[in-house]
Write a protein that binds this DNA or RNA. Sequence first.
RNA 1: GUCCCUGUAGUUCAAUGGAUAGAACAGCGGCCUUCUAAGCCGCGGAUGCAGGUUCGAUCCCUGCCGGGGACACCA
Length: 548
Amino acid sequence: MKQVIKDKLERVVDELKANHVWPDVQLPKFDITYPVHKDHGDYATNLAMALAKILKKSPMDIGEEIKEYIDMEGVDTVEVVKPGFINFFVNERFLAGGMRLILEQGADYGKNTLGVVNGKPQEYLVEFLSANPTGPIHLGNGRGGFTGDVIARVLKSSGYNVTTEYYINDYGAQVDTLAESVLRRYLQEQGINIDYPEDLYKGDYIKDLAKKIKLKDAPLGSQEAMQEMRNEVKEWSLNEMINGIKEICEQKLDIQYDVWKSEKSLHTKKNVDRAEKFLRDNNLVYEQDGALFFNSSQFGDDKDRVIVKKNGEHTYFYSDLLYLLDKYVDRKIDHWVWLLGADHHGYKGRMEAASKAIGHEGKMDIIFTQLVRLIFNGKELKMSKRKGTFVTLEELIDEVGLDVVRWFFLMHDANTHMDFDLSLAREESDKNPVYYVQYAHARIASVLDKAGDIESAPITYTNSAEEHLTKLLFQLPEVVEDVSQSYGVHKLPQYALEVARAFHKFYASSRIIEDDAVNASRAQMAQAAKIVLANTLALMGISAPDKM
RNA sequence: GUCCCUGUAGUUCAAUGGAUAGAACAGCGGCCUUCUAAGCCGCGGAUGCAGGUUCGAUCCCUGCCGGGGACACCA
C-alpha cells in the first residue's frame, strides 16, 4: 500500500510539472506513515510539508492544490490536515481485496524480494554469537545470538541468500588457559597435589570436563610426558566445548548455523603466504621493534595494529585479516552482517580500515548489542568466566522456556541497555507478553476448528475493530522490509503485540459463530490474522501454538 | 584522559525531524448461562538540566549532571 501511494505521488509531482503548476518542482523526499491515532487517515504522507519547505509556501495550501491531482482506486477520500499531512481513507473494497491476498499467500505473506538485485539474490553472511569456546554460553550471549538468528531469518524472507556463521576462537593463548585449567583439575581429581593459579578458569564446567576426560596414565615428572598430556587435554577439551556449544545452539536455542568457522583453520601456510604477499605488495605493513605492523591508521583506524608479535606469533587481528580475505576473496560474499557485543566496539575502526585496505569498503554492517545487566533480588549480578560466576542461557531456558527467553531478548532495541531481572523472569513468566500473542493465535485456532471449513464468501465490514485489524495485517510486508534494512528486530514483537491486541478486541466485539451459524466474513478475517501472527512468530523463532 | 552506547509513566521498554509521546507490568473500578477471562472495557500517571538549529525537537548540535562499556605485541 505504501508503495502504491508513493508511486502515485511521484506521478502527481510529474503532473504538477507537466501542467506548469509548479514547473520547477523537484520530487522532494516525502514520507508515508501510518496513522498514529484512529482519527487520522488510514495512510498519510507529509509530501505537502516537504514541498512547502522547497516552495516556501504554507503546507496546507500546497496540500489542497495537490489533492486535486490525487485520484486513486480504493481510496475514498483524501483530506489535508495540519501541519501538512495528506490523509488517505481507503474503502471497504480495498480492505477486502488485501484480505484476499493474505489468505492466498498464506505462509508466504510478508516476504519480499529486496535481496534480489538484477535477478540474483545477494550473498549475505550473518555472523553472530561466536562465544569463545572456553566457557559456557551465558545469558549475555543470548542477545547477540537471538538477534543475529532473527536478522538471518528476516533477510531470507527478503530474498537474500543468507549464510549463518559461528566463528570459533580456537587459536591463541586462551585455549592453552582452558587446557591448563582442565589438566590441573584433572590432576587434583587424581589426588595429585598441584596448585591452581588465579588466572585459570574457575567455573564448575572445568571440573565437569576434568571428571569426564580419560587420559592414559602418563608418568609424571618428565617434561615431555607433561607436554604430551597437555596437548592431549587441549585438543580434547576444545572439542568437547565446541560440541557442547553446537548442541546447545541447535537443540536448546533453535539456532541453526550453516558454517562453523574455525579461527585456527585460517592459519594455513597457503593462507598466511598469500596474505603476507598481498600485504607487502600493497605496502600495507611495516616492521618495527621486531614486530609486523598493519598500516590501519592510513585507512581511518586510530592507530596501527600489530599482526605478528615479536615472538613470531600471530595476533587476533591477523586472524581477522585472514578472515576478511576468506570472506570477500575466496567466498565472494556480497555483504557481511556482524553482530558484536558492545565491549568490542573498538573493532569497528580497525575492521573498517582493514576492509578498505583490501578493497572491500562498505560491505560490512557491524551491529552492536549492548550488554545485558543481570539483576537478582534488586542487585546487579556480575558475570565473570575467570571467577566462574555466570548464569547460563541453557539454565534459563530450562526454567522459563525458549519462547519466553527469545521474546525477552528480541523485544528491545539491541542498541539500548537493558536489565534482565532474574527474579522477575521466574515469577512473572506467565505474564510475559509472548503469551498474549500466542494466546491470540491459539484462540483463532480453536474458533476456526469449531467453525470447520470456511467458505470463501465476500468479506464485509460491520465495525471499527474489523477494519483496524485488517489495516494492521496489511503492515506485515512493510515491517519485514523495514527490519531487513534497519536490523531493528524489536519491531517484530512490537508488531506482533499490536496484531494480537487488535485481534482480541475484534474477538470481543465480533462473534464468528453466532446461533450455530458461521460468519464466513469474520472467519476469514480470523484466518488472515492467524497467518500474520504465525508468520511473525516464525520470523522470531517463537512457536505459534494451536492450544494453550 | 580519549572513544562507543545510554537517560521517556512507579517499573521494563516503544516512537525514519512531524498530528493528542505509545504499550506491557504494577495500582484502582467494571465485564464470564453464548466461539479459550492467558481475554475485553474504563481511570490515573513520563521526555535528566541548560542553550542552539528548525515552521516544528524525545530524536540533530554544544555544554552540564547521571548510568553502562571499551581503550594489549590478550583472544
